[in-house]
């Protein structure tokens, strides 16, 4: 009872949808519609799963009088106040999210939105700092990632093409210096030739590269997005979806049962 019924429910619901895709006629079409309707109702209840453990966690903190307990009091009282306010507005205006509702007008607009928006805007600072710290040209692949990121970052903003020539210039001069230093430290003649050659090529390339980027950077960014990036993303997502399908089949057939634990 505790295992068989859930497995049967999973099998029937999942299998029905697959059958309905290939045979959309009666009775599968309307059965699918019916099941979807039930799913809409039942899955709403998953929204509040997790809220209980959140509240319980903070309740325990308060009871044990932990150091952080005052914050837990704030959390639980906000929860209660907001819920009460929402219900009050819901009864008064038909829905707490009606345009005239005080809940929407004051709580949502002036408290919830600024909190959520600011919380996520912190990421702007973190990503700048992380880019500086972690983005190192450690090998060919890392360098490719850097170049592609640079093209997109500068190619997708106005006037990025004005700045790009300086960046490519500095990068190539840097490459030349590194190559010369590397060449000096090598013993074999052919190695010296390769590295000095690379240095010469970098210096010669500065002006053509700068010129190319100045006039073509937005188009280059377009090309990166629409051609190699697109192909790779397509391959990745086909792979991901194939994996998801395999997983879903295992679930429907009852091979994968971790969700029953």
């Amino acid at each position: 009872m505790k295992k068989e019924v859930p497995l049967a429910i999973t099998f029937i619901s999942g299998f029905l949808l697959i059958v309905a895709l290939f045979i959309p006629h009666e009775p599968f079409g309307s059965l699918q519609e019916r099941f979807n309707d039930w799913y809409i109702i039942v899955s709403g209840f998953t929204l509040i799963l997790g809220v209980d453990s959140l509240i319980l966690y903070h309740w325990r903190k308060i009871k044990r009088k932990e150091k952080e307990a005052p914050y837990s009091i704030i959390l639980i009282s906000t929860f209660v106040i907001v819920l009460a306010w929402g219900i009050y507005s819901g009864v008064k205006y038909g829905n707490p999210f009606a345009p005239a509702s005080s809940f929407l007008r004051y709580f949502y607009t002036y408290m919830f939105v600024p909190l959520q928006a600011t919380m996520f805007s912190l990421l702007a600072f973190f990503i700048a700092s992380a880019a500086y710290r972690a983005f190192r040209a450690r090998g060919l692949n890392a360098t490719l990632l850097l170049i592609s990121a640079g093209i997109v970052m500068l190619g997708r903003v106005p006037k990025g093409e004005e700045a790009a020539p300086y960046f490519i210039g500095i990068t190539l001069i840097l490459l030349a210096i590194v190559s010369v230093l590397e060449g000096v430290s090598r013993v074999e003649v052919y190695e010296k030739i390769i590295f000095f050659g690379l240095a010469v090529v970098s210096i010669i390339a500065i002006f053509p590269a700068a010129w190319f980027l100045k006039f073509n950077l937005p188009r280059l960014a377009d090309w990166v997005m629409n051609v190699p990036q697109l192909g790779a993303k397509r391959g990745l997502f086909i792979g991901i979806w194939l994996g998801a399908i395999a997983m879903a089949i295992r679930i429907i057939l009852g091979i994968e049962r971790t969700y029953l634990k």
Binding site: A131, F135, R136, L146, G160
Partner: peptide, 24 residues
Amino acid sequence: GMTAQTIIHIIIVALILIGNIGYL
């Protein structure tokens, strides 16, 4: 907002470049 976006992107690319100069 796109003007600010341009400035920050230039700052970030410059930071990445500086980080790499230091690293190399």
